[in-house]
């Protein structure tokens, strides 16, 4: 594999906890091995803010607000292969447990009726993304090519998964590697 042009990888955390990114770093020294084959484009790891043309995009987290939608779409446009990384990207995860609540009442409870709040109001700064009425997994908003569940998927699993993609091999997941927690 050496000598070939490196694959460009972008990553992002939407409605997630950055745990999957932590797991990505948790592959320890093998990230060096990985970096022989890939270079990171836009990612919290590089602090590059705009995504250019990429080979692989890793999405952590579900889609909970308007900005998540825009970013996810940008990733879909720019990335040849898009991967849902972790439980929240795969099925909404913890943030989706608000889905049975009315988002208006949530805003009300947090900004208007909470004890100790005097004259509170729901923030209306256009800089702030508006929340969607429900949190969605990423595959409900754009086409997703691969899914890697887990909360988080282990660093080792992410390494194996990416290695498969780099080598052009279909990732195969089963017991015990494939887990949802």
């Amino acid at each position: 594999m050496s000598g070939e042009a490196k694959l460009k990888v972008a990553t992002v955390s939407l409605a997630g906890c950055f745990g999957c990114h932590m797991s990505l770093l948790d592959m320890d020294e093998r990230i060096i091995e990985l970096l022989e084959h890939v270079e990171f484009e836009r990612s919290p790891l590089t602090d590059i803010k705009r995504v250019g043309r990429c080979d692989i995009g890793l999405i952590e987290g579900g889609v909970c607000n308007a900005e998540n939608v825009q970013v996810l779409r940008e990733f879909r446009r720019c990335c040849h292969t898009l991967v849902a990384l972790g439980a929240c990207a795969v099925n909404g995860g913890l943030p989706a447990q608000r889905n049975h609540l009315d988002v208006g009442q949530c805003l009300q409870a947090v900004y208007l009726s909470r004890q100790g709040l005097a004259g509170g109001r729901v923030p209306d700064d256009p800089e702030l993304p508006l929340p969607l009425d429900k949190v969605h997994p990423v595959h409900e908003v754009v086409r997703i090519d691969y899914f890697l569940p887990g909360c988080p998927p282990s660093g080792e699993l992410i390494f194996t998964f990416l290695s498969d993609l780099i080598r052009g091999r279909s990732p195969r997941l089963g017991h015990p590697a494939l887990r949802y927690d």
Partner: peptide, 26 residues
């Protein structure tokens, strides 16, 4: 609503175990 990370049956659940064995990734 199957949110395994917050379910105390995780690791002991047949639905989850079967999904893992049969390779259900999404």
């Amino acid at each position: 609503n199957h949110f395994c990370p917050s379910c105390e049956k995780s690791g002991l659940c047949q639905l989850q175990a079967l999904a893992s064995e049969l390779g259900m990734t999404t």
